[in-house]
Write a protein that binds this DNA or RNA. Structure first.
Length: 110
DNA sequence: ATATTGACCCGGA
DNA sequence: CTCCGGGCCAATA
């Protein structure tokens, strides 16, 4: 599988997060078909310059914003989330349960 | 070639 | 809640 295709799949998964909702690096990776590759998602996001990519909807699995709280990116992400009606408290949002997604991929049933 | 450092994650203790 | 060990991976102070 070429790196180009992988990257495309990840971008696609990020675009799949609807406004007002959030996901995590790990879930994006799993959704794209690459469980365990959260770092790859982070790398792609930091590299991508596509202005319409909803990067702000991607958080840590804990629900925390991944940037240092004093950084400009942190402030911007918080602002964008609130603009969509997402509640952010202390740099963290309530992360929804992994709707039988990550589990299904890691827990191969008998 | 080794060590450290990140927009990371997870299970177990 | 925290700490730890392990997985992951590319760039490099």
């Amino acid at each position: 599988m070429g790196e180009k295709i992988i990257k495309q799949k990840i971008i696609e998964a990020i675009r799949g997060v609807p406004p007002g909702e959030v996901s995590s690096y790990g879930r994006i990776a799993a959704k794209a078909g690459y469980p365990g590759r959260a770092r790859l998602v982070a790398g792609i996001l930091s590299e991508s310059d596509q202005p319409d990519l909803p990067w702000h909807r991607v958080l840590r699995s804990s629900g925390q914003i991944a940037f240092p709280p004093d950084s400009a990116m942190f402030a911007e992400q918080e602002r964008r989330l609130r603009a969509e009606g997402v509640e952010v408290r202390n740099g963290r949002v309530k992360m929804p349960k992994p709707a039988w997604d990550l589990d299904a991929l890691l827990w191969s049933p008998p």
